[in-house]
Design a protein around this nucleic acid. Structure first.
Lengths: 223, 223
DNA sequence: ACCTGAACACCGTTCAAGT
DNA sequence: ACCTGAACACCGTTCAAGT
């Protein structure tokens, strides 16, 4: 072990990679993505920004590593035995976990999946899908479909949060509609008064269950 | 009509609001959101950036107006008669339309829905849902659920595009997995070789249909 | 009221130079 | 190899001042 960081010849490394990752994790956790900057991170670390670039080629690359590190120490939850309920539980767990990390939204747009660390989720998902009669390709398709819902749910929550932060004063669009619009679209007119309520009553779990049920039904149709 | 922009007393307005909106629309269309900046827009208009701020309080506000203007001259597509097929068609149309505007993703995160202009979509959607036996609240719930899928689909496409742009050299994570991971997650190991294919074969329409079917099934369950 | 010039307070990233 | 100081090329937004 000649090159272990702790047992190293010569001048010790001033800025170990892990130190950068943990500092970045903390900075993201406390201030969110918009409070994060390479300069602020460098200040926290007491180094120059260029020193960080020695370890990571771009800010996005650093973010990816941070996300991977966080995914590594995620504990696996208890999952139900019934495959349908197991699918629902995995998806809800995924949503809730990613929702704890408000800054992941910015990474999700960039791409770069978390990869290996969250592999057990994919494994559990595919197992449950298989138990329900899905072939390998079908299981993959189901995962892709569900992933789209997950991303959409996270974005919707972020948008709702942002709207609450900006100004609670400015009302939702459903409160701003004039009467001339209502005659053109009668069904919307009927829905409009209830809109805010329905929005508030939206339960993620219910929607996940309905999406999953639609996918399960498509398994039966195919065989 | 004393204050019509064209028939106006005194010095004419140098920078009408509409000019800013059209210029911003063009700049966004050609270069995307990342090429857009208030300075570049001001350059295109031959004005100072501060002049733009005289019309719009923030960049986000300008974007919202641009999106609204684009939504206004959206033509309504031919829709199928059967309510299930109509729902699927509306959702697919919505996805394809928003996908033409690569920069909307940045707005979607910020929040601010387009509002009145796309009202006919909501109206058609709610009508079709009602025909299928959904109550008002159920129709609203269905729209919210479907919207999440739409956002997720748009984000997924953006992410895929970004990955193609960055470097076609860097492979997808499914090509990078080492053998030690495979023993721990046998189902993933089985799926992995097919992963890229399944990803490529993903059909948005199919997924939309399955999600819609799940929601339709939940209508029957409730009554 | 409408607009300009110039600034404020930031960004991500690069690079010659030091040790 | 590892790191610093200083710069490059940008941002969104504000504000005193002009007409």
């Amino acid at each position: 072990m000649p090159d272990t960081p702790s047992r190293r010849r010569g001048r010790p490394i001033r800025l170990p990679r892990d130190t950068v990752v943990t500092a970045a994790t903390r900075l993201l956790a406390t201030g969110g993505a918009e409070a994060f900057s390479m300069r602020r991170l460098a200040d926290d670390l007491g180094t120059s920004t260029a020193a960080i670039y020695h370890h990571f080629p771009t800010k996005a690359a650093l973010f990816t590593v941070v996300l991977g590190a966080l995914a590594d120490d995620l504990q696996r939850p208890e999952l139900p035995d019934a495959p349908r309920e197991r699918l629902i539980a995995i998806v809800c767990y995924l949503i809730d976990t990613l929702d704890q990390l408000p800054w992941v939204a910015d990474i999700l747009v960039t791409g770069q999946s978390t990869g290996r660390s969250a592999m057990w989720m994919l494994n559990e998902f595919a197992d449950a899908a298989t138990e329900l009669g899905a072939g390998d390709r079908k299981a993959g398709y189901m995962y892709f479909t569900v992933w789209r819902f997950v991303v959409g749910e996270l974005m919707s929550r972020r948008a709702a949060q942002a709207q609450r932060d900006t100004e609670p004063a400015q009302p939702y669009w459903s409160d701003l509609i004039t009467t001339d619009q209502l005659t053109e679209f009668p069904t919307v007119a009927r829905l409009l008064p209830q809109w805010a309520d329905v929005r508030a009553e939206f339960r993620t779990e219910t929607a996940v269950a309905d999406v999953i049920d639609g996918l399960i039904a498509s398994i039966a149709r195919e065989r």
